[in-house]
Simulated assay, not measured.
Amino acid sequence: MTAGSPQHQRADGGAEIVFGLSGGRTALRHLYQSSPMRVLFPDAEPGTAIMGALVNTAGGLAGGDVVRVQARVEEGATATLCTPAAEKLYRSLGPETRVGTALHVGPGAVLEWLPQETILFDRARLRRRLEVDLAPGARLLATEMLVFGRAARGERFREGFLHDSWRLRMDGRLRWADALRIEAPEEALEDRFGFAGAGGFATLLYAGADAASHLPVMRDLAGPLGAATIPREGVVLMRWLGPAMPVRAALASAIPALRAALFGLPPVLPRLWTT
């Protein structure tokens, strides 16, 4: 008799969060969480919105893990969601890691989606989807960053798989869609007409009726590694490509300035980005 292949334990969980107004202030209305996700509520900086910290208690995600996050900000409320550290995607033995995020922002509400970077270990396999629905008058500031390998170890993301997609709906209609698919990382990341050897790639998106008026500021904030454009009415998009640490520094510099310009918040990073 021969033993069969070992069956590894996989995570399958997530979180549901709802914020709404209570007595003129944003408060938590609903929370559901299941392992490996937990949501903590650290004190926010003075003058900033209520903050939810999405914590992966497993310390990283492996092949076959499934994580789902749903967040809703009700009419007139303002909230921030971020992570306390970079998310690590470990080497997979074959299965994909699946991450799905759905964000719903009510009329006149504001949501900041500001997770820290996702690090793709060599041979990681990730399929991730972000879906956003904005009601009339809603506004969103969202970021995501990918790091291709563990730079401190001299590791590159040479084998594996990545499919990362965004879908943004405004007033119930699809306004912007984007997808990044990499099936042969070493070739795609080294191609001079692709990623040209970059170690990091970051996206920042602002969606709101006043988006076009902020394009000049966002272009100034893009710096030498980035650029900003308006892909569709009501959407401004910034992207950076280059070495991982300078890309993260550029993103971390842009976020405080935009929080102040867009929402009148203090020009600081969420505390979890700096502790």
Rank of each mutant, 00 (worst) to 15 (best):
G47T: 10
R38P: 09
G160I: 07
M51K: 10
D210P: 05
V67F: 00
P270G: 00
L28M: 11
G154R: 10
A44E: 14
L21W: 00
E74V: 00
G94M: 08
W176S: 11
A79D: 06
E117C: 01
A124M: 06
A53K: 00
V69Q: 06
A196P: 06
E45D: 13
E190A: 13
G199A: 08
F19M: 08
L103Y: 02
D220V: 05
A44S: 15
T26A: 09
D191S: 14
T118N: 09
G137Y: 04
V132I: 13
R153A: 11
G4F: 07
T229R: 03
H30E: 13
R175E: 15
L205I: 14
V69Y: 03
T274W: 00
L130F: 12
T80L: 14
D43F: 12
T101M: 11
G242H: 06
V105Q: 00
V55Q: 04
P136D: 09
D164A: 08
R91I: 01
R72A: 11
S213I: 07
A211Q: 09
A261I: 02
P6L: 11
D210V: 09
L111Y: 01
G20V: 01
H214P: 06
T118S: 12
P107A: 10
P246V: 09
A260P: 01
I50N: 05
G234R: 10
W176L: 15
G172L: 12
A124F: 04
S92M: 08
P185Y: 05
S5K: 11
A177C: 09
D210H: 03
A44I: 09
R139M: 02
V132W: 06
L21R: 10
L40V: 13
R219I: 00
T83P: 02
R150V: 07
F201I: 04
G154Y: 08
R153W: 10
L162K: 11
A250L: 06
L81I: 11
S34G: 11
A11H: 14
T101F: 03
D210N: 07
L126S: 07
P107F: 02
P246R: 11
F41K: 05
